[in-house]
Design a protein around this nucleic acid. Structure first.
Length: 287
DNA sequence: GCCCAGGAGTGTG
DNA sequence: CACACTCATGGG
């Protein structure tokens, strides 16, 4: 595959394995040499570690710009400051914050919405399979066999039956229903909403409940106060803090405990909990 | 084969 | 409010 463009990107700290392999975003794979290849927008990217940051190879007719990838990797997040803030929590400071190079990513809102609707009650390898199938079937071809994530109008062409053939199971009708009710302009309008309003509006969509709404608010709309609670986070909260209960109760606990950077706390805990469960094995290639 | 999965929707007590 | 049940299916 020919590199259309190559440039350096200053971002520190960054741990590609943790950031791209932890299961917050689904279109990346780890190469044997430790670099990562993935699809962002209409570009195929290969990221490899270099001194002080990354080397970015962009392969596509319309290459990814430095600003695009900078936004995607949230390079303006001050990790040191965030960790100092979260480190006031005894439990987090006691080791979880050692994953300094785990950064949140900023996904496209639409791709994030559909991805996390598909992510319900499925493991990470399967989520990747479903998303690749949908992209191959309905997304624009970027380069020989590699497809972008389908835009709203692309996916509107898909019937529920089409989507079922992509292996989505019962999620097919949710995706279909979202395509029918959501105007692309809604997503632009929602960018300006506060977290609470954004969350409530997302929950109006079929297949979007508390957890998916928080994932989309965090990974898609970049609301760092969002704290998605899935089975892993429930385990972590129970194990680390002894708290259990409803989504609302756990959510309130997180808001009081972690504040405006709850999203980073969540990702540290998610990574930590899954690493513990899969100790001895690489969590980036299996479940 | 068995188990579980970055849950949501619906119905019931 | 809390549970209980169903939904389709593939990866470990």
């Amino acid at each position: 595959m020919r590199a259309e463009s190559r440039f350096g990107l200053r971002v520190e700290p960054i741990d590609l394995d943790a950031t791209l392999g932890c299961g917050q975003t689904f279109r990346w794979r780890r190469d044997p040499d430790g670099s990562w290849t993935g699809i962002v927008g209409r570009s195929i990217l290969r990221l490899s570690a270099s001194s002080g940051g990354l080397t970015v190879d962009s392969m596509a007719a319309s290459p990814c710009t430095k600003k695009d990838i900078s936004t995607y990797l949230r390079t303006s997040d001050d990790i040191a400051s965030i960790q100092k803030n979260l480190g006031r929590d005894d439990v987090l400071s006691r080791g979880i914050l050692q994953i300094g190079g785990l950064r949140l990513v900023k996904m496209d809102e639409w791709e994030c919405l559909i991805s996390y609707v598909l992510a319900t009650y499925a493991n990470i390898p399967r989520i990747k399979t479903m998303i690749d199938s949908v992209a191959t079937a309905f997304g624009a071809e970027i380069l020989d066999g590699v497809h972008a994530f389908p835009c709203v109008n692309d996916l509107r062409e898909a019937s529920t039956e089409d989507l079922s053939r992509c292996g989505l199971g019962y999620r097919a009708r949710y995706v279909r229903a979202i395509c029918e009710v959501l105007d692309p302009r809604d997503l632009d309008r929602m960018k300006r909403l506060g977290y609470a309003d954004l969350r409530n509006e997302l929950k109006q969509l079929p297949g979007v409940g508390d957890k998916v709404a928080d994932c989309v608010a965090l990974f898609g709309f970049g609301r760092l106060e969002a704290f998605p609670i899935d089975v892993w986070i429930k385990r972590a909260l129970s194990r680390l803090y002894g708290v259990t209960g409803s989504y609302a109760k756990l959510s309130e606990f997180a808001r009081l405990r972690f504040g405006g950077f709850a999203g980073y706390a969540q990702e540290y805990m998610f990574y930590n909990e899954r690493s513990l469960a899969t100790a001895g094995r690489c969590i980036f290639s299996e479940e």
